[in-house]
Simulated assay, not measured.
Amino acid sequence: IVIGVPDSGLDAAIGYAEQSGIPYGMGFIKNKYIGRTFIAPGQKNREDKVRIKLNVIRSAVKGKRVVLVDDSIVRGTTITRIISLVRAAGAKEVHVMSSAPPFTDACYYGVDVDSKENLIACQCDYDMEKIAKKVGADSVGYLDVNTLHMIIGNKAGEGFCAACFGKGYPTRIPTGQKDRFEEKISKKQEEKAKESYEMYLRV
């Protein structure tokens, strides 16, 4: 069965199912009140949000070989947790497909794509078997970076930034910008964020 990680992985999962001939199914029920997990501050916080955000539909995956499609794999935090949830629901195998190429470089234009040392593709030397082992999947596959232009219908890929996929930055890399974004938030802000999150959990 092919299942997509809601909501951003659903379209790619449907397309993969159509092209592969493997049946598509709804694999998750999503809590709509939890935002993007990969931008949440702190590893533990991200893992907790994944647990609250997604519930696997056991009857859809139990005893099956699952192709799990997500929009991207950045640090690997979210997909690792999702794979463990799918396995706990009884899946025999879990094969992960990313509708984005491997992230190889940080983004300096507003997207929370981390520094090289925190990107799972870089940590694993772009080795698919190593990445699969690290996230707990039977296999991992990515979109080929050279086919990106097909998504936007532009043969030359003009006007499309693929810097975080290793295609070079369109402007000079700003100095200090990424470091500033990665600095720890103030103690007061940290306590306020923790208080809000704990209040949410109580509700």
Score class of each variant (00 low, 15 high):
Val2Lys: 05
Pro6Gln: 05
Glu18Phe: 04
Ser20Arg: 07
Met26Asp: 15
Phe28Asp: 03
Ile29His: 07
Lys32His: 13
Lys32Thr: 01
Ile34Glu: 06
Arg36Ser: 13
Arg36Ile: 11
Thr37Glu: 11
Thr37Val: 13
Ile39Gln: 11
Ala40Leu: 12
Pro41Met: 10
Gly42His: 00
Gly42Thr: 05
Gln43Asp: 15
Asn45Val: 10
Asn45His: 09
Asn45Leu: 10
Arg46Glu: 06
Asp48Glu: 14
Val50Thr: 00
Arg51Trp: 10
Asn55Tyr: 12
Ser59Phe: 12
Leu68Met: 04
Ile73Gly: 04
Arg75Tyr: 04
Thr80Asn: 10
Leu85His: 06
Arg87Met: 04
Arg87His: 01
Ala89Asn: 08
Ala91Cys: 03
Glu93Arg: 11
Glu93Ala: 11
Val96Cys: 02
Pro101Gln: 06
Pro101Leu: 06
Phe103Asn: 12
Phe103Leu: 13
Asp105Arg: 13
Asp105Asn: 13
Tyr108Leu: 01
Tyr108Phe: 09
Val113Trp: 05
Ser115Cys: 13
Ser115Gly: 14
Lys116His: 09
Lys116Trp: 01
Ile120Pro: 00
Ala121Phe: 02
Cys124Trp: 04
Asp125Pro: 00
Tyr126Val: 07
Asp127Phe: 08
Glu129Trp: 09
Lys130Arg: 11
Lys130Tyr: 09
Ile131Ser: 00
Lys133Leu: 10
Val135Trp: 00
Ala137Arg: 03
Asp138Trp: 10
Val140Ser: 00
Asp144Thr: 10
Asp144Ala: 12
Asn146Arg: 11
Asn146Trp: 07
Ile151Glu: 11
Asn154Thr: 07
Ala156Lys: 14
Glu158Asn: 15
Glu158Phe: 15
Glu158Arg: 13
Gly159Glu: 02
Cys161Asp: 03
Cys164Tyr: 03
Cys164Thr: 02
Phe165Thr: 11
Lys167Leu: 05
Tyr169Asp: 11
Tyr169Pro: 11
Pro174Arg: 05
Thr175Cys: 00
Arg180Val: 11
Glu182Phe: 03
Lys184Asn: 12
Gln189Pro: 08
Glu190Arg: 14
Ala193Val: 07
Ser196Glu: 14
Tyr200Phe: 13
Arg202Cys: 11
Val203Arg: 15
